[in-house]
Amino acid sequence: MGSQEEQLLLQEGGLLECGVEGLYTGDGSVDIKGNPVMKHKTGNWKACPFILGTECCERLAYYGISTNLVTYLTKKLHQGNASAARNVTTWQGTCYLSPLIGAVLADAYWGRYWTIAVFSTIYFIGMGTLTLSASVPQLEPPSCVDSVCPEATAAQYGVFFLGLYLIALGTGGIKPCVSSFGADQFDDTDSMERVKKGSFFNWFYFSINIGALVSSSLLVWLQDNCGWGLGFGGSPITRVCQVVVASFRKWNVEVPPDSSLLYELPDKTSAIEGSRKLEHSDELN
């Protein structure tokens, strides 16, 4: 028995030694549960598309807001140029200071994965709040009449700046973690994976520039020509919320025998101003 146990222990030890080059990564990486990372199950390029997508979307959102923010504050919230410029620079400064919070949380408490997950959720909530502030008429001051522009109320300012600074907080957990989290997917002790890590950073900076390019051109054009709610991503969110509310309100309503009555409204235009009428569907009656 003793010899068999010794042989088993030697085999296990051999597997652990071989793991450096075979089963496990050799740089001491652990997974989300704190276990040693097995190469064939995780890491490498498997998670990289999601990491690159997160970075691209974050840059898309950030530059889509910051590029035209002074214009929004002056034209829609009727602030003076000096006040608008001050608010924009304060917000941008906050965006570049908040990564200190994310870095401390990632390194000392949560790890990169959970830090990115939590702060991405905060970022999404901020984008939703900002979008609603630009889409809901009650959250915007009235338009100018005879060169008289009413100032935004405290509540209107509150909703707008709440969304804006939730985004600033959200970017603080993404900026310091995403690039290093992508680098963690590759084993430094593996010469082939070191090459792949270099390729990852090429794609990473390409994603940043694509996000900045699209936001600085297409999104700015949408904001100026199609509305700020659409530019901030609001039209889909507004309609989704309306569908959810209508579904709960009409939960117990009986379906009429005449299916044509299910076609939104008999009018030629949509019930939502500025939106196209919903097409009739035989599948989703």
Score class of each variant (00 low, 15 high):
109 Y>T: 00
180 S>A: 15
112 R>A: 01
164 L>C: 11
161 F>M: 04
145 V>G: 03
53 G>S: 15
72 Y>T: 03
152 A>S: 11
153 T>K: 08
118 V>A: 13
53 G>T: 13
130 L>C: 06
63 Y>P: 00
56 C>S: 09
172 G>F: 07
96 Y>K: 12
182 G>T: 06
104 V>W: 12
113 Y>K: 09
72 Y>E: 01
66 S>M: 14
63 Y>L: 00
68 N>V: 12
110 W>H: 11
179 S>G: 12
67 T>Y: 07
188 D>Q: 13
91 W>Q: 05
193 E>Y: 03
157 Y>M: 14
169 L>W: 02
103 A>K: 15
77 L>G: 07
78 H>G: 06
60 L>P: 02
170 G>A: 08
183 A>L: 05
92 Q>S: 14
116 I>S: 08
111 G>R: 02
176 P>H: 09
71 T>W: 14
139 L>E: 04
90 T>Q: 11
77 L>Y: 13
176 P>N: 07
185 Q>R: 09
71 T>N: 10
69 L>G: 02
182 G>K: 11
61 A>R: 04
161 F>Q: 03
140 E>C: 08
57 C>P: 03
149 C>Y: 05
128 G>S: 10
180 S>M: 13
187 D>R: 05
164 L>P: 01
53 G>I: 08
63 Y>R: 03
108 A>C: 10
103 A>S: 15
170 G>V: 10
158 G>S: 15
140 E>W: 00
169 L>N: 04
124 F>Q: 13
165 Y>M: 09
55 E>Y: 14
54 T>E: 01
159 V>T: 14
129 T>M: 13
92 Q>E: 14
120 S>T: 13
57 C>T: 15
123 Y>I: 00
151 E>P: 05
95 C>E: 00
95 C>Q: 06
113 Y>A: 00
120 S>N: 12
100 L>K: 01
175 K>R: 01
118 V>I: 14
100 L>D: 01
182 G>L: 12
194 R>Y: 04
95 C>D: 00
171 T>L: 11
157 Y>G: 11
97 L>E: 06
90 T>F: 11
57 C>Q: 13
76 K>C: 07
187 D>T: 06
127 M>A: 13
64 G>R: 06
78 H>Q: 07
169 L>Y: 03
186 F>Q: 01
96 Y>W: 10
150 P>R: 00
130 L>I: 02
141 P>Y: 09
144 C>A: 12
114 W>D: 05
110 W>T: 08
